[in-house]
Design a protein around this nucleic acid. Structure first.
Ligand SMILES: [Mn+2]
Ligand SMILES: [Mn+2]
Ligand SMILES: [Zn+2]
Ligand SMILES: [Zn+2]
Lengths: 160, 160
DNA sequence: GAAGGTAATAGTAATCATTTTCAATTACAT
DNA sequence: ATGTAATTGAAAATGATTACTATTACCTTC
């Protein structure tokens, strides 16, 4: 019978990331990562704050913003703008079970659909583009953002 | 010798668009379009306001915002978010001499590079994706947004 | 061409996501 | 256990965008 390590909050692998960067692995940071890890949605800073607040009411909104910025810089979290005036966050693909995907955004109801059907082909093209642009513009690509805007099934039929 | 039509402000073709929609082609709208037409940059609402203000000081910032929203809805203008907290605008590709292009964004200095080297290939892939996603998710794609983040030549060498 | 009705406008105030400030607390190497 | 720099939370500031309201421009009808 495997001995279960006694731990109040699960010690995910990313604790090591923090140490590597010389950052402290504090309770707010743990909780915020936990919340991100447990959600499949595209949470805003305030969404995250509210969930965090349930687990640990002492944590302030400012800390959520600060931590998210840190996590984005560390590459653990991706930040998106879906056009509704607030930033959205999700755990980065490499981070976990989450696979690399892109987004469909309904401009009517705001629904976000993750898709990764074509991500492989997209990534191939991107890799090619990346090389050429690096040569032509001496531009060092670190990241990309691909999203499609339109109408989801419900909104599409509704408009007819 | 071609007779030059006497006109104070050039009557661009988009005047027709307005009438088609049942909108008035007012002076603020003309000036704002003119400013967009004459600029190759990616202007924020305030950038536009300042330029407009030089030509026609009576026009207010609110009108700039309202007009931009209208123009975006009409499809004459494209709105972008390059991550610096303010929206950026440019005349839509179909509109004019402007060709369809995508953007490279330097995350260090904020420089924006237009490129259209691969846009053709990208658009082919997009068209394909579009069809499949429309089938699979019943999602009606109207628009897309592709941008690359990284370091421009200057910032790239600076960091070494 | 004048009156009436509606769309559009300018200036102001309000909103709201995000940052900044700063004193108090905490993690953690010693 | 202690010292110290990193981190935090509350409050205030910021800054882009939007809402409100009175005024104006434009178009239609007489
Ligand atoms: Mn997603
Ligand atoms: Mn451009
Ligand atoms: Zn929808
Ligand atoms: Zn740069």
């Amino acid at each position: 019978m495997p001995r279960r390590r006694c731990r109040w909050r699960s010690e995910k692998w990313w604790q090591g990331e923090f140490r590597g960067y010389g950052y402290r692995f504090t309770i707010p940071r743990q909780i915020i990562l936990q919340v991100l890890d447990e959600s499949k949605e595209h949470l805003s800073a305030e969404d995250i704050y509210l969930k965090v607040h349930q687990l640990y009411p002492a944590i302030g909104l400012t800390t959520v913003y600060r931590t998210l910025e840190l996590l984005v810089n560390m590459g653990l979290v991706s930040k998106f703008d879906f056009g509704d005036g607030r930033a959205r966050f999700e755990l980065s693909p490499k981070t976990d079970q989450v696979s690399h995907h892109h987004h469909l955004i309904c401009t009517n109801c705001g629904r976000i659909i993750d898709y990764n059907d074509f991500v492989k082909e997209e990534l191939e093209l991107i890799k090619k583009i990346e090389k050429e642009l690096a040569r032509k513009y001496s531009f060092e690509i670190k990241n990309h953002n691909i999203q499609f805007y339109g109408l989801c099934d419900k909104c599409s039929t509704l408009k007819k």
